[in-house]
Amino acid sequence: METRPPVPPFSREDALAKVRGAENAWNTRDPQRVSLAYTVDSRWRNRHEFVEGREQIVAFLARKWEREREYRLIKGLWAFGDDRIAVRFAYESHDADGQWWRSYGNENWEFDEHGLMRRRHASINDLPISDAERLFHWDLAGPRPDDHPGLDELGL
């Protein structure tokens, strides 16, 4: 059986590590890599889409990152319990026409005993922004640098 530490029950430090690990993985924009953090039968609600299982997760993420170009994400811990973590997040990307967007949201996560996410519920709102309003500036080839401000520091 796969294990993805840290595993429940989560301490504050564990929850912070899970959140940063998820942010770093999503910022790779690699659907296959990201899918490995979820159970094989993981269930998602993402906006109006319902996704079940790793195959559908990979397909969903491939479509997402085809539309959301130059995607950069910041996640922040909101709350945590034994096997659950709530996060808030924001990401910036642009569409095929060059319009930049900042998307804000909240996620509720539930994990199995091996530290794999078995449920993910995401609520997301989108705001068109100009290039000058962008706040997320780091090299697309890597994760958000440790010295780059988080959501609170950016006033988000």
Rank of each mutant, 00 (worst) to 15 (best):
L61T: 02
I74P: 00
Y71I: 09
W65L: 04
G76N: 08
G76T: 11
R72I: 08
R72L: 05
G81T: 09
D83K: 01
E70A: 15
K64C: 14
R69D: 11
E66G: 04
G76Q: 12
F89A: 03
A59C: 02
L73C: 08
R88W: 08
F60R: 11
G81E: 06
R72N: 03
Y71V: 06
R72D: 06
I85Q: 00
A59V: 06
R72Q: 09
G76E: 15
V87H: 02
D82W: 09
K64L: 15
F60M: 15
E66C: 03
L73Y: 12
E70W: 12
R67Y: 11
D83R: 03
E66F: 03
R72S: 05
E66H: 05
E70F: 10
R67T: 10
Y71R: 06
I74V: 15
G81Y: 00
A79T: 02
R88M: 12
K75V: 11
E70P: 04
R67M: 13
G81Q: 06
K75A: 13
K75L: 15
R88Q: 10
R63S: 15
V87Q: 04
L61D: 05
W78D: 12
W65E: 02
R88S: 04
D82G: 14
D82N: 14
V87E: 04
D83A: 12
L77G: 01
R69W: 07
K64N: 14
V87F: 01
R63G: 13
R84N: 08
E68M: 09
I74L: 13
R72F: 08
F80W: 03
F80A: 00
R67F: 11
R88Y: 08
W65H: 04
A62V: 08
E70S: 15
R84S: 13
R72W: 06
F80C: 00
E68C: 03
R84V: 11
D83P: 04
R72C: 06
W78H: 06
R88C: 05
D83V: 03
F80V: 01
R84G: 05
K64V: 14
K75H: 12
A79L: 02
V87T: 12
I74T: 07
A62C: 11
R67N: 12
L77I: 10
Y71L: 13
R69I: 14
E68K: 09
A62W: 05
L73S: 08
E68N: 06
V87G: 00
F80S: 00
F89I: 03
A62P: 08
A79S: 10
V87N: 05
K64R: 15
G81L: 03
K64D: 12
A62L: 13
F80M: 04
K64E: 15
A86T: 13
D82R: 10
D83W: 01
I85M: 05
L77N: 05
I85Y: 01
A86P: 07
V87I: 13
L61K: 03
R88F: 07
F60A: 09
R63L: 13
W78Q: 09
K64Y: 13
F89D: 01
W78A: 07
E70H: 14
Y71D: 09
